[in-house]
Computed example of a mutant assay.
Amino acid sequence: MKKSKLIMGLGVAAVAGALLVAADHIDAPGSMGTTADIADFYAFEPTEGSDNTVFIADLQSNVVDGLAYGTFDENILTEINIDSDGDLVEDLVIQAIPRDGVMYFFGPAAPSATGLSGQILVDMPLGSVAISGDTEVIETTADGVSLFAGPRQDAFYFDFFRFNEVLAPSPEDNSGFNVPGEDTFDGANTMSIVVEIPNSMLGEATATNVIGVPVYNTWLTTNVKQ
């Protein structure tokens, strides 16, 4: 199984704060409640004019604060896919897979296969970091790559219950959404994987976003061991 969430044109040199987001909280029954379930994917510059890009993969969106945190499944490979020539096929991948409380990262490098299958790029280690619990752990490699894996507050803001009321066949109140709404995901966590990486390791961006800034095409997939 390989699930994809496509995000077109995230910035190599994007203006500060500009990003695109794909959200799909609580997915199909086969992956729901596991770290194969992709909730959100973000890519952005950490600061204006930075030469780095930050990728954030939020997985397993129903990790409720105050309960036991979820865990990363050791049979799940998370892959950040980067298209650098505009054909919407991954040219580089950054991989993350957990083992015994540590998240191991590989790449960025050309994948062994594109599309629905792939292998861990064991010959291209990027670094590793202890999976955070109550204490945040961030590891920075000699190449200037910063890594994190662990629970984070869910950044997705959505009034899920009001949304369902509006969509109901015969809503009691047809006035639409409340302003301000109520954040259904407030107090919930995701299991997050974060990579901040120098753009020099990602190659040239060949796409352009709507404001004329050079960007990558990038998307996230999760692969289950067969």
Rank of each mutant, 00 (worst) to 15 (best):
F148I: 02
D159M: 11
A142D: 12
I56F: 01
V54C: 06
G127C: 07
F160T: 07
G144R: 03
V213H: 00
E136V: 15
F161S: 02
G101E: 04
P108Q: 05
T141S: 07
D123L: 14
T190E: 00
G70Y: 12
L77Q: 04
L126D: 02
N217I: 15
T208P: 08
T34Q: 04
N174F: 11
V224I: 15
A68Q: 11
V137I: 15
I120A: 01
P180Y: 06
V145E: 02
L19Q: 01
G181W: 07
N164G: 01
L20R: 13
E45Q: 14
S31M: 09
S175D: 10
S146H: 07
N199M: 02
G9A: 00
F163Y: 14
F163K: 07
E139A: 15
N164A: 10
M201Y: 05
A207W: 02
P198N: 05
S175V: 12
K5V: 14
L167V: 13
M8F: 12
F106K: 00
R162D: 12
H25V: 14
G176W: 09
I97H: 01
V166P: 08
A188G: 08
D83Y: 06
E165P: 13
T114W: 01
N199K: 05
T184Q: 01
N75A: 10
D73M: 05
I56L: 14
A110H: 08
A188V: 15
G86V: 03
M1D: 11
G11P: 11
G107Y: 03
